[in-house]
Design a protein around this nucleic acid. Sequence first.
DNA 1: CGACAACTTGACGGGCGTCAACCGGAGTGG
DNA 2: CCACTCCGGTTGACGCCCGTCAAGTTGTCG
Lengths: 261, 261
Amino acid sequence: VRFSFDPQAETPPVGHAEMTPTSPLAPFAAKLHRLVGLNDAALADIDAWPHRTTRVSAGRYLVREGTRVVECCILVDGYAYCQKTAGDGGRQIVSFHLPGDILDLQHLLLDYADHSVQTMTDAVIAWVPVKVMREAALTHRAICEAFWRDSLVDASIFRESVLNVGRRDARARVAHLLCEFVTRRAATRVDGRISFALPMTQEQIADATGLTPVHVNRTLQSLGADGLITRDRRQIVIDNWDRLRAAADFNPAYLHLGQPA
Amino acid sequence: VRFSFDPQAETPPVGHAEMTPTSPLAPFAAKLHRLVGLNDAALADIDAWPHRTTRVSAGRYLVREGTRVVECCILVDGYAYCQKTAGDGGRQIVSFHLPGDILDLQHLLLDYADHSVQTMTDAVIAWVPVKVMREAALTHRAICEAFWRDSLVDASIFRESVLNVGRRDARARVAHLLCEFVTRRAATRVDGRISFALPMTQEQIADATGLTPVHVNRTLQSLGADGLITRDRRQIVIDNWDRLRAAADFNPAYLHLGQPA
DNA sequence: CGACAACTTGACGGGCGTCAACCGGAGTGG
DNA sequence: CCACTCCGGTTGACGCCCGTCAAGTTGTCG
């Protein structure tokens, strides 16, 4: 099943989270439900979490490296990423996040942030006290397991990132980023092709792949020239998924989708 | 305290794990105890885990990428590392491990291995059924927290690895590897200098840093020529910790030592 | 219409990869 | 005790992928 993997066909089933549908935490609860399957008590617990919701513009810091964290942030809408800064000022984006993702789960157990979290686009963020989430994890076995599993999947994605920047050339790195994005985010499929709007600038792609913006630009052009993708501004169409996946050396197993306990 | 960090001075306190001292799981229990502090019941539980111990020669696979895992392996003695393989055959070492480390904690919740685990030297391994460890995590809150926290620290190390291979040059990457090694492993200090035996070949250093063996060799020579280290075979002496740390852009915060809950 | 950010293009250079030869110590067998 | 082998380490020559620098273009927003 690995080689015939199709990002569109295998969209994981969205559970019917029985909580207030209009709650900003709904996409988050749905994600947890996908991870382990939550019972009604757990869903009710999440629904009752005290939280505040804020609207944040693109490029804002949600967490700063080195600071102490007392609130976890959950991405309700928009895109965000985690980054680390090198001593010479170089920036490395270590992960990007979609609506429903919890952005700093590690702060439930680690007091100090070892990386920063920043919005990639205008976004809606729900803030929940760390204490509340810790308590929920201790009370509900399923929530604990969902959190833990989510941490483990994150770690797996990091491992793949190390491989990506450590052992693949620019072409594969950029292609891999595109493949991961469309696989994690359900993309719309038009006329047999996969089409989506990439929310990041080429500079951000560069910081995620360990390249320079100039070279990212050339690499994207090269992918286009070879008929793998078509671009119109940040709108991207994948013309040939199989060839892009091959160029990216992309195997979605590391995302650990489709095995919800 | 960060910038004056000294790997020898800040060795975390080893708890008095009250379990059978001769048990192969003793170093593992000691590590968990450092992470969260275990009560006697938890320690007794670990002491009673059914397990088998095997002696393994260097270079053997303990876990293979893509396989289903039913036993967790704990490193009792020796060194090991985790690796992923790229489509073109390139290898990326994503982490290395010391005695007491659990090598595949993620398999408590993820069914399939997304990477391989291999011994770096001759080693002693304790194998514990996944079911037993899952049960222990569900029974003892402290064990659950220790496992989870361990996963989170691992993830933090992966993030730093992404930064290392993505945004630092060869000199900094190799220096960073050395710094991380002496910080995680308590090195012996002789005459004000830090001395230790590096268990890995230059090829393995290359696979961990995303370089080639040839360039690793030149980089090590360069570090030696600049008076940062002295080498005699794989025995390494750090002549100037501060300069090496600066060259490595090394900040040990990402290891999350010294905050045992 | 001006300002700005993002993108694009070209010229040039260097860090690191590649290839290949050689060395040196450890283990092995005669 | 000495050849032989093998793995790991070392060295040199050469070249390419990607970084750097800098100018120019496009789209957007006020």
